[in-house]
Design a protein around this nucleic acid. Structure first.
Lengths: 106, 106
DNA sequence: CTGTTAGTTCGATTATAGTCGAACTAACGG
DNA sequence: CCGTTAGTTCGACTATAATCGAACTAACAG
C-alpha cells in the first residue's frame, strides 16, 4: 500500500504555504476540506482532468497543508489543522477567514 | 510627476496577495516595511539589480500590499495596513507573525 | 483472474514569472 | 544646462509551473 510523504510541522515553510494557497483551485480545495473532512479527491475535481487534480493535491501535500491517507481504493484528504496551528498559529484561520470575505462562496 | 496605480481595497484579491507574499524576497520587503516605513526602494535592494527590485515592487503594488509615493527623487513605499485590514481583517498580521515564527530573522 | 475505481506518473506543450543589462525618465543640486 | 540619483521600462533569456492525454498501479468486488 503506497503512502505519501508529508513534511514535519517544523519543516513547513511559509513561502510554500502561501504559494500553494495562491492558486484559486487549491484554495477552494482547502476551503472545502475545512468545511468537510476527510474527503477523497474525486468530489473536489470540479471538472478537471485527473492528472491536473493530482498535481494540485501534490502541491498542497508538499506544502504541508493536507494529509492524504490511502483507505482502500480512495485516498482520503484532510487538513493538517493542528500541525499548521502549532507551526504558524492563527495563519490558516486568517486565510480561511479572508477567503470567506471574498465574494466567492465555497 | 509620474504616479502609480494602486488597486482599491475592495478590489484586492486574496490569491494575488498570497502569491505576492509567497516570494521570499517580497515577503522580506514587506516585513522590513512593517518594521520601518515609509522607505525608499534602495535600502531594500539586498544586492539585486535595480530592474529586478523594481519588478518585485510592482508585484507588491499590484497586489495592493504597498503604496508608492513619489517624493522628490525617491519613491517612498509604505504598507497599506489599514486598507488591507479593512479588506481582509487579521490577514496581514497573521502572515507577519508567521514570518517571524520562521527561523529567519528580519 | 477480470473488471472497475481512484488516483498517480510520465512526457510533451504551453503559459507565466524571475533575472539581468541597457536605455530611459523625472526631480533635484550646482 | 549638466550631472547625479532613484527608479522604471524594454527586451531577451531562462526557469518554473499549469495543463492534459495516455499509460500505469493498488485495492477491491465478483
Amino acid at each position: 500500500m503506497k503512502q505519501y510523504d508529508h513534511p514535519l510541522a517544523q519543516d513547513m515553510q511559509l513561502s510554500c504555504l502561501l504559494y500553494a494557497l495562491s492558486d484559486p483551485f487549491r484554495l477552494t480545495v482547502v476551503r472545502k476540506l475545512a468545511a468537510c473532512q476527510p474527503q477523497p479527491c474525486a468530489p473536489l475535481q470540479d471538472g478537471r482532468p485527473k492528472s491536473s487534480v493530482s498535481h494540485h493535491f501534490a502541491v498542497l501535500r508538499k506544502a504541508g497543508l493536507i494529509r492524504t491517507e490511502v483507505v482502500g481504493v480512495t485516498h482520503m484528504n484532510s487538513l493538517r489543522e493542528q500541525e499548521l496551528e502549532s507551526r504558524f498559529p492563527g495563519l490558516l484561520a486568517a486565510i480561511l477567514a479572508a477567503a470567506s470575505v471574498e465574494d466567492v462562496p465555497v
